[in-house]
């Protein structure tokens, strides 16, 4: 049954990571899908791996679940080397991007699958399945229903219940929400986070959506070209992206190059900052003259609920600013925006 607290493992939870990735690499012929990925994921952590498609995150997850083997490197589960262990011998479970529900079976049979494979009796299986359906907010009347008759959200919950059935120590999620509409996705994100808190299990989640990662995760790892480029809490990554790639990936940003004490595009001196790039979030630009001024023309104005986004034509090209909806600037207006260069985050590459 799902424990309310993380299980005791004999060794202190804070010293032995739930999952330890040691220089994992995976090559497909000449393609290096994964390069030397090392990472510790703590017990009870909600860890999200974010990256664009092709960055190797699915390959990584398949290796973690045992569905693929690394070309080199090792994987330790609570200190035990499981690199070569087949998936059915691992105390982990995965929710697939496609969900991979067994369409030829009922909802109940899907949920019970892991228990049946472990030889649990029919009665006990059903009791457990009903409990799990309750947990994922599907009623008991779903038990006998064919999965082909379930809606997208319902199928999502069935997949989740199925993965939880064997009470796995670690759950893997391969972009399970990507096919759902926005509202449902938002609901399920919250539920998933709640479920993780209640069960205390370690969740490893992959997505290409930063927003999803931000909402749910304790920590986030950013992948690019098969390598982890930055690992940190959502705020660490948001506030202090490691490079322009991470910065851009985290959302719409303005990037200005610094060279020899000058901002190159604006042709403005900026003494005291090393060469590199300034990362300016849209909200860091304001239509005042309290910092370093930029003369510009408003190209477009987009209403974003309580805020507006402005596209500005500046000497440095297109820049993006965000303001409260009370801002009166319209497309075509001449304006001066400014920012505080000392508060701006600098990356070296």
């Amino acid at each position: 049954m799902i424990a309310a607290e993380p299980q005791m493992t004999g060794t202190p939870a804070d010293t032995t990571p739930a999952l330890s990735l040691q220089r994992l690499s995976r090559h497909f012929g000449a393609t290096r899908a994964l390069r030397d990925v090392s990472l510790d994921i703590a017990e009870g952590e909600f860890f999200t791996i974010v990256g664009p498609s092709g960055s190797g995150k699915t390959t990584l997850l398949r290796i973690l679940a045992g569905l693929d083997r690394p070309t080199s490197g090792a994987l330790l589960l609570r200190g035990q080397d499981v690199t070569l262990q087949p998936p059915n011998k691992r105390p982990t479970a995965m929710v697939f991007q496609s969900l991979a529900l067994f369409d030829h079976r009922s909802v109940g049979q899907n949920v019970e699958f892991a228990l049946k494979m472990r030889g649990v009796g029919a009665e006990a299986r059903k009791t457990r399945a009903l409990e799990l359906l309750e947990l994922v907010r599907l009623g008991a009347d779903y038990y006998g229903r064919p999965v082909t008759q379930c809606s997208g959200g319902e199928r999502q919950r069935v997949a989740l219940a199925r993965a939880l059935a064997s009470d796995p120590e670690i759950l893997f999620f391969d972009e399970p929400l990507s096919a759902l509409d926005y509202r449902l996705r938002k609901t399920l994100e919250v539920e998933l986070r709640g479920l993780q808190r209640r069960t205390g299990r370690t969740f490893v989640y992959i997505t290409h959506s930063l927003e999803e990662a931000m909402v749910m995760s304790d920590r986030i790892g950013i992948m690019k070209d098969g390598a982890l480029v930055q690992v940190g809490t959502p705020s660490q990554i948001y506030d202090r992206p490691r490079d322009r790639f991470v910065a851009r990936f985290m959302g719409e940003v303005n990037i200005l190059e610094i060279r020899d004490g000058r901002l190159v595009e604006l042709d403005t001196p900026l003494p005291g900052r090393a060469d590199g790039y300034l990362v300016l979030r849209p909200e860091a630009l304001s239509p005042t003259e309290s910092g370093l001024p930029i003369r510009c023309t408003v190209l477009e104005r987009f209403q974003l609920g309580s805020r507006v986004q402005l596209h500005l034509d500046t000497p440095a090209g297109l820049m993006i600013a965000e303001q409260p909806a009370s801002c009166t600037l319209q497309a075509g207006d001449e304006a001066t925006f400014s920012f505080d260069p000392d508060a701006a985050h600098r990356v070296s590459e």
Partner: peptide, 15 residues
């Protein structure tokens, strides 16, 4: 037979 169903079954403990 979609490969992901086999993967899912293996992952769920099926020999």
């Amino acid at each position: 037979i979609p490969q992901d169903r086999i993967d899912a079954a293996r992952d769920l403990g099926a020999s």
